[in-house]
């Protein structure tokens, strides 16, 4: 791809039940940037994430990836995207290793068992690799999903409330992972009610809601 990586959003408007969630939103996200979407409950944070990821079809406006409309090369965009929604897609009857292998298998197939275990170790699940996920706590299940971040090659991360059910130490480690990804030229779009503790030059926030 000749164009530099860049996500941009033009005149994005989303209307639900005769009410505007957000209106004429314009922003862009460049390599090295972390964009936090904040706003009160019901201000359309999750909807915005789903619209940008391409899950939600109810919007007007335009989305561009590397300068091209996303609709023109959806598989290409998906190949560059790591999306984590409210529900992490972790199956209770499978082990963390199997879950992670499946989630990564949709994008790449070159991972060895050691790679998977190393990623699980980074989210402090050492010793739980072979335990069915229904035996793990909510926070641990969340970590299984978050372990993807340590194996992902996709430049664009869209994370919807990734810190839910994660303990304080885990949050610090995750923040570090986000900054590291950005420093390596990645881009992050994240919603959270948590105040980011890091001090990073590429960090910006976008506040939704407020005006109706």
């Amino acid at each position: 791809m000749t164009q530099p990586l860049c996500l941009s959003v033009a005149e994005l408007t989303c209307e639900r039940d005769e009410r505007y969630l957000f209106r004429a939103l314009n922003f862009s996200l460049n390599p090295g940037e972390i964009l936090q979407i904040s706003g009160p409950n019901g201000s359309g944070k999750t909807t915005l994430m789903r619209v940008v990821a391409g899950l939600s079809l109810d919007f007007t406006g335009a989305l561009f990836w590397c300068g091209e409309p996303i609709d023109e090369d959806r598989p290409g965009f998906h190949a560059s995207l790591l999306y984590l929604g409210h529900h992490p897609g972790v199956k209770p009857t499978m082990t963390p290793e199997e879950n992670l292998r499946w989630a990564m298998g949709l994008h790449r197939n070159d991972l060895s068992r050691d790679d998977i275990w190393a990623a699980l170790a980074k989210v402090r699940l050492t010793g739980f690799e072979d335990v069915p996920c229904y035996q793990l706590s909510a926070g641990q299940n969340r970590r299984v999903a978050l372990a993807r971040l340590f194996l992902a090659q996709q430049p664009l991360w869209i994370l919807d409330e990734p810190f839910t059910a994660i303990d304080r130490q885990g949050i610090t480690e995750l923040e570090l992972a986000l900054v590291q990804h950005a420093e390596n030229g990645g881009m992050v779009m994240v919603t959270t009610h948590h105040e980011m503790t890091f001090d990073y030059s590429g960090f910006r926030t976008l506040v939704l809601g407020g005006s109706r």
Binding site: G54, L55, P75, G76, H78, Y83, H87, G89, K91, L106
Partner: peptide, 18 residues
Amino acid sequence: RSDYEDGALEQLMLSPLP
């Protein structure tokens, strides 16, 4: 249904596979 409810379907839809 279960893939829809636990979010796995979203992952499937956002994979580069058709």
